[in-house]
Design a protein around this nucleic acid. Sequence first.
DNA 1: AATAAAATTTAGACAAATCTAAAAATTTAA
DNA 2: TTAAATTTTTAGATTTGTCTAAATTTTATT
Lengths: 220, 220
Amino acid sequence: MNFTTSEENYIKCIYHLQQETGTVNTNSLAAEMHTRPASVTDMLKKLKAKKLLQYERYRGFKLNEAGKKVALEVVRKHRLWEYFLVEVLKFDWDKVHPIAEELEHISSDELVQRLDKFLGNPSFDPHGDPIPDRNGKIPVLNQLNLSEIPVKKTVTVSSVSNQTAQMLEMLKHYKIALGTQLQVNKKFAFDGSLEIKVLKQSPCIISEQVAKNVFVHYEL
Amino acid sequence: MNFTTSEENYIKCIYHLQQETGTVNTNSLAAEMHTRPASVTDMLKKLKAKKLLQYERYRGFKLNEAGKKVALEVVRKHRLWEYFLVEVLKFDWDKVHPIAEELEHISSDELVQRLDKFLGNPSFDPHGDPIPDRNGKIPVLNQLNLSEIPVKKTVTVSSVSNQTAQMLEMLKHYKIALGTQLQVNKKFAFDGSLEIKVLKQSPCIISEQVAKNVFVHYEL
DNA sequence: AATAAAATTTAGACAAATCTAAAAATTTAA
DNA sequence: TTAAATTTTTAGATTTGTCTAAATTTTATT
């Protein structure tokens, strides 16, 4: 089945809302889509006709399995393109969202497969969000503090708890950003400092104080 | 100014037609666009309102300078994406057109600039068609027979006159395809054979008979 | 339980892009 | 140069996605 750009955008939006709330209502979807409740009702009828929704008049609604499958394909494309834009074309990670919003609607399945392969089948996008695989399986994010991970395990930076300018300056110096892949080479018991190896960089030492503020994840 | 996908498709199509015939008429544009003459008239009104056309009722029409600029931007995007699909994602060159038809409408200028840079500012797409630069300048195609080009000049294969299965098998063996870049290392006067160096391949020898059927181009 | 408030849907309209059928302008050709 | 053929345009409809305003249903409150 084929879907319009508008349908795909609604489906994706419903998907994200129902992840948080289980069931979605017309007003919140309208707010999220920057449109009017009446427009939402119109689109819901179309999506119900295409059998993508559990939906009853005046009650809430959510995607059924078919709808979730479509949503995951769009999310997959969005995040793969974001990865491409940042890792290949060297965009700043905070500039890529609107472009990926357009690219995610390109329809070729083979394009997605080849892009995925070219990028090395990445599991997380530059914002740290998981990229569903071609079957719609979402890699589980196992978030840990950098000071706790085993040595030699390749992990991806997913969040930073201390977002002061001083901390960000430090992370920039170490070339650590959201999505950066790194390993811990050694842990020094004396002061809790770590020798880490950032992908494509030389190893360096960071203090326990820094490590405590960096959270990372890896696939199970 | 912004343009819809539909407007861009009409503009591109008018551009290609007027390259051949100087001026374009409603019926031929309708045929080329797989649509009806009445639909063409409707769109022409819009394009005239946006001051992209020289157009008078019942007379022919053509793009003015502003219209040509838009056309060249779309052509540039189309051909850069085709290059990307073939050279980076390893699509067969005969499969990329419909995908590039979608990608060419992605609007970000920065995306095009970065893509162009990433690809190494290519001058010709995988079909041998010239890629306009960011100012709309089209590289001049200087087509010559492979047997006639100076040694050590990097050239791009643009056409093959003998398209028999035997010839294509041979070219495939040598890893020569449309768009392949190569140099002639030596010319042997004895039998007219050539030692050529295909980009990323080891040098090899081809007969004068093969060379006579391969046409190449390079920028002036 | 009755009423007020909030959420949702219906009804009717509009813009973009398309279509068919018919009218108008232009070109061709007898 | 007038009639026929061709080309182009207009008129009016259709589809998709959107909107506003009003009506309806559900939920909350007194």
